[in-house]
Amino acid sequence: MATKLQQFTLVFGFVSAVWTVFLLNLQPAALKPSPAVSQIIPALPFVALVAFCAYSLMAIGYRLATFNDCNEASQELQQEVKLARADLSAKGFKF
């Protein structure tokens, strides 16, 4: 099976090749984009990069903001530590 790097290279290479074809206007005449679309083609890699970064920042920011602090779990554990110490001491365990 291809490694993740090979998979990435394959997809990246394919998309880059398609972009280059449109950039140099080498595509079949039937696929000719409108003048408005032609204008943004050179900027597409930059747009993709910005979109990816924006998505990444939002994803990380959202998960950071919604991270569960588990305060109850900590309090519960402290109670259980007391129980454990008392029970172990009663059974003759020496800390």
Partner: peptide, 26 residues
Amino acid sequence: DGGAFGWDVSRKLISRTANYLAQTLL
């Protein structure tokens, strides 16, 4: 309901970013 107790913001940020990178790459 998973999570972590005792992490400050920078610790959370590092682990969230590390996890995001791993999810994206792997």
